[in-house]
Computed example of a mutant assay.
Amino acid sequence: MNATLATPLTAADRCDRCGAQAYVRARLHAGGELFFCAHHGREHLPRLRDLADIDDQTERLQETPAASTADEI
């Protein structure tokens, strides 16, 4: 993955299909980017693999938030 694709997607990045938070970025070789939620990424990326560099950050959906210090008291 190149460094420009390594930039984490944020809550401000939205799926171009449904508006949900984007976890997949497809940077098209012809120019431009497409953003997808995990669901639409699974649906559309097989057709885009030869046309774009793919940044799939869906593993972030499995992350567990750190426990707060209040839980440790």
Results as ranks from 00 to 15, higher is better:
I54T: 07
L34K: 09
D71S: 15
P65S: 03
R25E: 02
V24K: 02
D53I: 08
Y23L: 14
G31D: 02
C37R: 09
H40Y: 08
G19I: 12
L28V: 07
R60V: 00
D16V: 11
R27G: 04
E59G: 10
D53W: 14
G41D: 01
A52Q: 02
E43W: 03
T69A: 13
D71T: 14
A67S: 07
D71K: 14
R47G: 13
D56E: 07
R60L: 04
T64E: 08
T7Q: 13
A52D: 01
T64L: 15
H29I: 08
T64W: 05
Q62E: 09
E33F: 00
L51Y: 10
C15M: 02
Q62K: 12
A3Y: 11
A67I: 03
E33Q: 08
S68D: 11
R47V: 12
G31W: 08
T64N: 05
F35W: 08
R60A: 02
F35R: 09
L28P: 08
T10I: 03
H40S: 04
L51M: 09
T10D: 01
D71V: 11
T4R: 15
R49V: 15
L45I: 15
L51I: 07
H44L: 13
R25W: 00
D55F: 11
Q57C: 05
E72P: 01
L51Q: 13
A70H: 07
C18F: 11
P65L: 05
P65W: 01
T4K: 14
C15I: 02
R27A: 10
P46L: 05
T58W: 03
R27Q: 12
A12Q: 05
G41C: 05
F36L: 04
A70R: 08
R14T: 08
T69M: 10
C15K: 11
A26H: 08
D56S: 13
A11N: 03
Q57F: 06
I54E: 06
Q21K: 13
Q62V: 10
